[in-house]
Write a protein that binds this DNA or RNA. Structure first.
Ligand SMILES: [Zn+2]
Ligand SMILES: [Zn+2]
Ligand SMILES: [Zn+2]
Ligand SMILES: [Zn+2]
Lengths: 162, 162
DNA sequence: ATTGCAATGTTATATTATAATGAAAAATAA
DNA sequence: TTATTTTTCATTATAATATAACATTGCAAT
């Protein structure tokens, strides 16, 4: 199986592991690229990784300012742009929100499953889908550059709960 | 071939035909459902169908008000909601914009190709993609409800032009 | 006529995102 | 080191997108 894995975050998964490995990947990648993971950027990444549910920019901002700081929107958008540019987070277009990238941050075409109940997002990568899209694009005379694939629905745990 | 067709709108296609058939579909569907295609709704649908490039809500509003009318945002959003509900238009999530539905308006899962040069959008339907997504969803333990698939890239004509 | 309902109008405001400018900090060069 | 340049961050204002809340109109059923 070359394509996706069972990677929807279970209710009981060890999220500490997610966070830890996200930071390891971020640090490795920044070291490798000579990019600076400043305290501000680290903090925003940490906020994003508080859960697997996407956060809006203003939600991030609110958390940044929880202890009385006075960061303004451009600060959070700039920081999110940095994290996006380096593939450390993804933007979920259908939600105007941001979620941590769960994979090695090299450019990749991701498919997101978004649970409408718990709000969690699972990132997957499927060659079969990529190929099907390429085939369709070829028939339509279209050159694929940036696919946005965001599938709303329900995760296993949420539909087990009715 | 059960899946998609060559349906990117060519530079030279007869757009009058697109508009005409869009209105025929809209009228048939509203008749069938007892929904009212009021002058306001007809006008918005007409504005949306001016081209194959998605329009933002405020672009629609501007066109509605071009002759001095004073429609306000809720009017256009309500009207767009009606057209969306009946499948007469689609919302392109990655653009916050709206485009006419090119197919019979029964609930369908569409894939959009969006040309970054000319801005045109082609709507396609591919069983292969649907199946690939279902397969991936099953592996991830996910129940698909509302897929958003919006592929940015370049249409044939635009990359022929360099 | 009166009631009920769907459609539209109106005002205000919420939410998401960026422009423009400058100060501070960090890296690089001299 | 000091000077120079670049990157990062702060600040103020504003643009762009979307909705809440409530009023009015028009039309159909009783
Ligand atoms: Zn986790
Ligand atoms: Zn869920
Ligand atoms: Zn056309
Ligand atoms: Zn094009």
């Amino acid at each position: 199986m070359t394509s996706s894995d069972k990677n929807f975050p279970g209710r009981d998964h060890d999220h500490g592991v997610c966070i830890e490995s996200a930071f390891e990947r971020a640090e490795a990648l920044c070291r490798e690229r000579g990019a600076k993971l400043t305290p501000l950027r680290r903090r925003v990444l940490e906020i994003i990784w508080e859960s697997h549910a996407p956060l809006g920019a203003y939600d991030v901002l609110q958390r940044m300012n929880a202890e009385g700081e006075r960061n303004a929107p451009p600060t959070v958008y700039r920081t999110l742009d940095f994290l996006l540019k380096h593939g450390l987070i993804h933007r979920i277009e259908s939600m105007n929100a941001f979620v941590g990238c769960a994979m090695s941050a090299d450019a990749h075409r991701a498919l997101f499953f978004i649970c409408r109940d718990c709000g969690n997002v699972a990132e997957t990568h499927s060659e079969a889908i990529g190929e099907a899209i390429e085939a369709s694009a070829t028939r339509a005379g279209f050159l694929v550059e940036t696919p946005v694939m965001e599938i709303s629905g329900r995760c296993q745990e949420c539909y087990d709960d009715e």
